[in-house]
Design a protein around this nucleic acid. Sequence first.
DNA 1: CGTATGACGAGCC
DNA 2: AGGCTCGCCATAC
Length: 107
Amino acid sequence: MKSDSFFEQVYQLIATIPPGKVATYGQIAVLLGRPQAAKMVGWALHQLPEHRSRPWHRVINRKGAISYDSKNSGQSLQKYLLEAEGVKFDAHDRVDLKKYQHIFQNT
DNA sequence: CGTATGACGAGCC
DNA sequence: AGGCTCGCCATAC
């Protein structure tokens, strides 16, 4: 797009995550070449315009848990969306990254 | 242009 | 094993 900013790259990268899969902020940050800019990824979704519908719900933190605790709202929604795609949450509301973490292949 | 932010990560206790 | 603190880096104002 006109914007090849870090944010835009995040949007396009998460857009490649297939349903039923998830990715961590840090993972995406690493893929974009900024392993320590995980916060930027989260912030990118924070600034994500709703009219540009993106599978932001497939992006979770390193613990496999849903974040979005800043406003403390929307967590249930994200969990709901993921469950709808077949992602199971454990008693700690965390997903099994070993099973659901999407492996980005740049081949 | 400079300061503060922020949906995180890793380390330390 | 679980919780708290510090640090990173690009974007926003």
